[in-house]
């Protein structure tokens, strides 16, 4: 304080007001959000800019460390779209994202509803379903790679035992199945996250709403459509948008299970981007693909932010 006084009453007053606002006004809010934002911008925003920049430049191993590089305009984008694998990868990415998220969400929701029933041990058993949350992707990939193997894989043995299939399905090597092999593993991996968040959302719905509806003669399905879904809109928004981001970042499973093969039939955008940068050492194309993926996440973020509009504050 002494220092402030010396610099004159006007500045001192300003400073005091600033400090007071920090303690007791908007300044406090700005400080809280600002600290997080500065941190995020430094650690995530700058790398983002680096990648966007790189997608418009010519990059080689000698210029990886600098920002100023020969300008390439949209050439990298044109080159990526012209790659023979481009449309196949786009299709695979869509399948992977849509069905992973769909599977995680539907099964996660079903489990969340199931475990919201009142039966002995419900919460303990539900806890077990969070296991995939703590499993590192690397480990999950290795395990599923074994389970899905065609000849010595246990999934085929089980399915044959149950009479569902007659001969082995080559999950990892058949172009008709390879992307589904990764989808299956990814659904398993993401189940915990979906079920957890949806359980939280379910628990937040006041019981009396259901009781009132039951008195009005609404059946279970009607109650689900008129109470559960609308009340969970913000939770569902969060689950889906975080789920999309998570799915688009899912990487560990690909090198472990299919390596994008056979013949790129299980290559998705994020794996392709990594492969361009770190296996083919074409850093500009790798960055270009990752920037293209940004557009998808942009959509997800908008959905999420919009979904929070309907939130009811406790």
């Amino acid at each position: 304080m002494g220092v402030i006084m010396e610099t004159g009453p006007a500045v001192g007053g300003l400073m005091r007001r600033f400090l007071a606002s920090l303690r007791d006004g908007v300044g406090f809010d700005i400080l809280l959000v600002g600290a997080a934002m500065v941190f995020l911008i430094a650690m995530a925003g700058l790398p983002l800019i680096y990648n966007v920049l790189m997608s418009f430049q010519q990059v080689d191993m000698f210029t990886l460390g600098s920002l100023i590089r020969p300008w390439a305009g949209f050439q990298n984008y044109i080159d990526v779209v012209r790659e023979p694998a481009f449309w196949l990868v786009a299709k695979n990415t869509f399948i992977f994202v849509f069905f992973s998220m769909g599977g995680q969400f539907v099964i996660g929701f079903a489990l969340a509803l199931f475990f919201a029933q009142n039966f002995p041990g419900a919460s303990t058993i539900r806890g077990l379903f969070l296991v995939s949350w703590v499993m590192p992707g690397l480990v999950v990939g290795a395990i599923w790679s074994w389970i899905l193997a065609g000849d010595f894989g246990v999934l085929n043995t089980i399915l044959k035992g149950l009479g569902i299939i007659q001969s082995n399905v080559f999950w990892k090597s058949d172009p008709a199945f390879s992307i589904w092999a990764v989808v299956i593993a990814n659904i398993w991996l993401g189940l915990a996250f979906n079920m957890l968040l949806l359980s939280v959302g379910l628990a937040a719905i006041p019981r009396d709403l259901y009781e009132a509806a039951e008195l009005d003669g609404a059946n279970a399905l009607q109650r689900f459509w008129t109470i559960t879904l609308p009340m969970m809109r913000s939770t569902i928004g969060a689950v889906l948008s975080l789920g999309l981001i998570g799915t688009l970042q899912q990487f560990d499973l690909f090198p472990a299970i299919t390596e994008g093969g056979p013949a790129n039939t299980s290559t998705v955008a994020q794996y392709w981007s990594w492969q361009m940068s770190f296996q083919l050492y074409d850093f500009a194309k790798g960055a270009t693909i990752s920037v293209m993926m940004l557009v998808l996440v942009l959509i997800a973020s908008i959905i999420y932010v919009r979904s929070t509009r309907h939130e009811v504050r406790g």
């Binding site: 065609g150 080559f170 990892k172 090597s173 058949d174 390879s178 299970i257 390596e259």
Partner: peptide, 14 residues
């Protein structure tokens, strides 16, 4: 031919 006829596993691809 080997892969198609099952003389080699389809999993040689992965």
């Amino acid at each position: 031919k080997m892969v198609d006829n099952g003389w080699a596993s389809k999993d040689v691809l992965s």
